[in-house]
Design a protein around this nucleic acid. Structure first.
Lengths: 344, 344
DNA sequence: CTGTTAGCGCGTTCAC
DNA sequence: GTGAACGCGCTAACAG
């Protein structure tokens, strides 16, 4: 009559009673390494299904088991690429029955304040992405779950976790080749400062190729990877000598700012006067008025791989903290010319 | 020696023992409507502080109390505006000690699959944003928490929840005035289809002003609010008669696509041939090559208001599901001319 | 105001 | 294999 089905908790006891077995049998049915006769197992499963039973997570956690919660330690979402990665990651997580919970932070201080707090969740996995916390913080965060994952933060060997990342070194190499193919002889690279290994990796790959080609490279380092920073830093870069004729921007946001500096502020033509390569392939890079050649990060693969690790662990009960390097791909648009004429 | 402080659970019992009181006193100290002598309260608080005690959430939930988890029912993050709102919301939530947990879905079907699952979390609040689930689904989702919030989904009177939203009707009015001020006489509006009340509200406000001015208005409806859709729909719109000389795009993504259609595909000038107004004020709208005049949604206010409601409820133990309409503001850039000549 | 007692729902020994 | 009994940490209802 007034029995709202809202909080109508169906407990293991209910199922046990309805199935005519003890509660332990029900519990075992829902446990991995159980030992239940196939007959009863099926029976219990059927009854549970009919009653709409789901093991209560709070109780499960309290009893010492891990929850289905996946903690995501993440920084500001200001880069569309990061939002996209989070989007895909959440989808995959949900599909597999996990629950993504955001621990959004700005600084190491934030992380610390959040740390004591999260221990109690007994999360299956903790994923760090979009920020580069100090090695120590990472370590602590990782220790909060059986299967810590560091997502797209480059190859960090200082943290004991499964590494899943785009191969940024390789991405930098692609950028260098694109610029070289464009006939660039005075390249520059713009990276982001502070705890951002991935930008270093990109720059390293970039310079590796240039070194091999015997080409010198200018460098600009900005404090934040934003449009504004990219625009300002480009102006500074272009004022230097020798004036660059090709720039590799650490991300597309900066590249967008760079384009405006180049064309609007300085009245130069791209790629005529200066060739440009970005990184990430965010929607803005494909805009008609920009058409920036860029290095695309395979977002879906990153998400798949990360979730795959969690799923595997769930099945096999073990993991071998391996590193997965995912290859980026160069997307040719209008800011690099394939001169072809470059060969003599 | 090997006592890792990692999972070193400090329980209420530990605190009670150390403080020389009973566990109930400790519990009461951490409960709202408690009745503890001020002396003991201080004592307990001090001891708890020293020992680093935090009430265990799983146990708390199991005992029937609500957790500090705030469930966020959200759709795809493809619009930067939405990512920004989520970003700000998460920040505010964390500052207040709440834990945002994502229930990311694409369809009503997804929502259903997630529903039984979430009941057990006893969340303080559930926030719906970025998607417009059917009234029924919204209702069920809302029933999962004492304080349901519908964030920036317009004024939905069919769901029993606190409404926090930009005043989209008013936003549409601003857009109309901007276009009219620009000297536009044959305006058009592009909205998004399917369960997206907010686009309807924007269009309604837009047409309200036009009606008052006795100006007719063309209309285009696209299935998704993306760059591509906006570009294609703009071409169709411009092929009609009379040819619009001003377009109000339901969001900046579509406006970006529209700009490319107008200038690149059709070779028209903006605002010379056609004036443009977008909505949201995403970073892309401010790009040097676009400079789109747009209606900015006050993201911070939206987030503040939503979290404020939760905090208030936490303090006062009650809420009065009111609607909060937050005023958007017009951002003048280069796609609308302030002709000034319009006044005869 | 305080201490005691009894569950919340589940996983897990232990005997059988 | 199975069932009974205990404990995870906390809140609530009860007696003092």
């Amino acid at each position: 009559m007034s029995k709202k089905s809202a909080g109508s908790r169906v407990t293991a006891d209910d199922v046990a009673r309805a199935a005519g077995v003890s509660r332990s049998v029900v519990s075992r049915t829902f446990t991995k390494g159980a030992s239940v006769s196939e007959k009863r197992r099926k029976l219990v499963l059927a009854v549970a299904e009919k009653l709409g039973y789901e093991p209560n997570i709070a109780a499960r956690v309290l009893a010492g088991k891990s929850s289905n919660v996946v903690g995501i330690l993440i920084g500001p979402l200001l880069n569309p690429f990061l939002a996209d990665l989070l989007d895909k990651l959440s989808d995959r997580l949900r599909e597999e029955g996990f629950l993504p919970t955001l621990f959004k932070v700005g600084t190491d201080g934030d992380v610390k304040s959040v740390l004591p707090f999260i221990a109690q969740y007994n999360m299956v996995s903790t994923i760090v992405m979009g920020i580069s916390p100090s090695a120590q913080i990472s370590k602590v965060f990782a220790s909060q779950s059986p299967i810590p994952i560091v997502l797209n933060l480059g190859v960090r060997r200082d943290v004991e976790a499964a590494i899943v990342t785009t191969d940024h070194f390789s991405g930098g190499m692609l950028a260098a080749r694109a610029l070289l193919d464009s006939g660039v002889t005075k390249p520059a690279v713009m990276t982001r400062q502070v705890e951002t290994e991935i930008y270093e990796e990109r720059a390293a790959g970039f310079r590796h190729v240039l070194d091999l080609a015997g080409v010198a490279c200018a460098r600009s380092v900005v404090t934040e990877g934003s449009y504004e920073a990219g625009r300002a830093a480009t102006l500074a870069l272009m004022a230097g000598a020798p004036r660059p004729d090709g720039i590799f921007f650490g991300n597309d946001m900066m590249a967008l700012g760079g384009m405006d500096a180049l064309r609007l502020d300085l009245g130069l033509s791209v790629p005529g006067d200066v060739a440009v390569v970005g990184y990430d392939d965010i929607p803005g890079a494909a805009l008609g008025a920009y058409q920036i050649s860029t290095i695309r990060q395979p977002v879906n693969k990153l998400a798949d791989k990360a979730v795959g690790i969690i799923v595997d662990f769930d099945k096999q009960g073990t993991t071998d903290l391996t590193s997965s390097l995912i290859a980026p791909v160069f997307v040719r648009r209008k800011t690099t010319g394939s001169t072809g004429a470059e060969s003599v």
